[in-house]
Design a protein around this nucleic acid. Structure first.
Lengths: 153, 153
DNA sequence: GAAGATTGACCCATCAATCTTA
DNA sequence: TAAGATTGATGGGTCAATCTTC
């Protein structure tokens, strides 16, 4: 592996690596704009709502959310600030551990998420998933697992 | 495709899509930190140097660079500002079209790139490419092409 | 003292407007 | 009038420091 470090990427390696970067950059940009245009929601905001929607009582601790969303703890705090400002989420002190806070979906947040979901699912399927058959989707997930165990969970 | 939009992602789709997002988020963060720690270079800055290093005369028009790097035109201007400030790049007016500017690698920029390259190549291979055999790398590149023609070029 | 969460300072990226040359 | 590039305003993200509760 030593001198390997010096050899530039060959065409095959470039295709696998740069392709990954380019596809990610374009897809995320497009999905973000699409969500923003249709529902005034950022992609990260959508993900927060998604996890809250799936959680019992529509609420989750800030620290749990931070683990799910691809964002730092403080980044999540700022994002939830905006969601609270927009009335999609509110905060609730934990009863058992008064250091902790829940972020909780409001009825308006639930509606916003449900509306945005159709747009987003269509976007992800049209631009990404529809390009692969089932075996290829499984293969991709398996590759992600190899790079980062738990990534596709 | 219509009602499809409403059906949440199944386990297979989730694995392929969320895995992609998670792996990208972690990899880019780690590679960026690594480059920053070892050479004071940001990942985007590395890419600029990479393209300049490969260009004849070590220089490229700003607009050409913006097409290669995953960055907006103005984002590139700011980044090159910083590289100029750090002495790794300088700017040169085009002779034939005086609206245009070249960004050109300085000797220090060339040295910085060569030094950073070993670190970065090792990082990309260790964390990503080494997880796949040659056939899998080809397969990945082919999948990226399907999502975005030219992505792996 | 450590964990959960927020805040202040700062960096980086984008959009729309602008300036210059073609 | 359009193309190449930069700039001002703004939004969003991170780190390190801080506050509160365990």
């Amino acid at each position: 592996m030593s001198a390997q470090g010096e050899r530039p990427l060959d065409a095959r390696e470039l295709g696998a690596w740069r392709g990954f970067l380019r596809v990610h950059a374009r897809l995320v940009r497009e999905l973000d704009r699409e969500l923003q245009a249709a529902h005034g929601l950022q992609l990260h905001a959508y993900e927060v709502l998604l996890f809250l929607d799936g959680a019992p009582g529509g609420r989750l601790r800030m620290s749990e959310l931070a683990d799910s969303v691809l964002l730092s703890q403080s980044g999540l705090t700022r994002l939830v600030d905006r969601l609270v400002r927009d009335g999609l989420v509110d905060r609730e002190r934990c009863d058992d551990d008064r250091r902790g806070l829940y972020a909780r979906l409001t009825p308006a947040g639930r509606r916003a998420f449900r509306a945005a979901r159709a747009t987003h699912l269509r976007g992800v399927r049209d631009r990404f998933l529809s390009r692969f058959d089932e075996a290829e989707q499984d293969a991709l997930a398996e590759l992600w697992e190899r790079v980062e165990p738990g990534a596709s969970r």
